[in-house]
């Protein structure tokens, strides 16, 4: 894990407060350059606040926030030249035609590429004469994406990009676009509820829970250490054997546990013949185990 300030995204003990309410609490995270980072969390976990802070739109109450090595609050306008953003809600004014939006973008970004934009728009089959407000939610996302990519960003920040997209568009987004970005070495930070989609692409995952970053880890090791283990009998003294659990519940006459530091040898030693089933977990299962209420 990179913890230095040269990472694509680096936050050091960031806290964001709204009055007495703490939205983000002492979060330190680092997203290495070229990485696809999935920032996950339930509604109200603090994702949006953290994203706004990463974009320099909102100042952290405490802590340091750096994007592409720069202090984002003080250098936001320069940094945004290098950051592509697909917001959760497409933010272009509804009365603006797509071509007007494009003209506006072209005036703001020195690295604007009309060819890149046109190429992607042709794929989406959206007329530039269409008013932004007349586009479907999915089309708005597609236009936003095309706009973001046409600026040749070094960091692409996608805030719940699949919201409102149909299955095909969602698949296209993850498989084509994000993968393409990753292949080109562009850092991608994505917040999403589509965990299945992001699972295939993310290099690293962070999970926010009630404002705290409860998990920040590369995806493969994460998945390797999380297992759903079912025991035929109960109770089972897992902790005594050195296995940590995120969740333990009754399973028929036995017990089901989510083990967070699984390894075969320990399992063999602790579980013995009681182990009925050891199953790998999807990112969604891990998320539920870590961020779910009952966890």
């Amino acid at each position: 894990m990179s913890t230095d300030s040269t990472a694509a995204v680096f936050t050091d003990r960031v806290t964001i407060r709204y009055g007495k309410k703490v939205a983000v609490d002492d979060v330190t995270l680092s997203v290495p350059r070229g990485c696809v980072y999935a920032l996950l969390g339930r509604n109200g976990a603090g994702k949006s606040s953290l994203v706004r802070t990463l974009l320099g739109q909102q100042r952290a109450s405490a802590g340091d926030v750096r994007v592409l090595g720069e202090d984002v609050w003080n250098h936001r306008d320069v940094l945004m030249e290098r950051v592509g953003i697909v917001p959760e809600d497409a933010d272009a004014p509804p009365d603006m035609r797509v071509e007007a939006v494009v003209r506006f973008w072209a005036a703001l970004y020195s690295r604007w590429s009309a060819a890149l934009f046109d190429e992607r728009m042709r794929r989406f089959n959206i007329s530039p004469r269409t008013k932004f407000g007349d586009l479907s939610k999915g089309q708005k996302k597609q236009v936003s994406l095309a706009l973001a990519l046409a600026t040749s960003p070094e960091l692409l920040l996608l805030d719940d990009p699949t919201l409102g997209l149909d299955v095909v568009a969602r698949k296209s987004l993850f498989e084509e676009v994000i993968a393409e970005m990753a292949d080109r070495g562009i850092t991608v930070v994505v917040t999403t509820h589509d965990l299945a989609g992001v699972e295939t692409l993310a290099d690293r995952v962070g999970i926010l829970k009630e404002g705290r970053l409860v998990l920040d880890e590369e995806l493969e090791p994460l998945k390797a250490r999380f297992r759903r283990v079912r025991f035929a009998a109960r109770p089972v003294a897992l902790a005594n054997g050195g296995l940590a659990t995120a969740k333990v519940r009754a399973w028929g006459s036995g017990t089901e546990a989510v083990v967070t530091n699984f390894d075969d040898l320990t399992m063999e030693r602790v579980g013995g013949n009681d182990v009925a089933e050891v199953a790998p977990m999807s990112l969604e299962d891990i998320f539920i185990a870590v961020a779910g209420e009952e966890a």
């Binding site: 306008d77 945004m80 004014p93």
Partner: peptide, 15 residues
């Protein structure tokens, strides 16, 4: 909350 349209772009608050 529509000002983020500008603040997501490479323009300063003064601009």
């Amino acid at each position: 909350k529509r000002l983020s349209f500008y603040f997501s772009r490479p323009v300063s608050g003064a601009q």
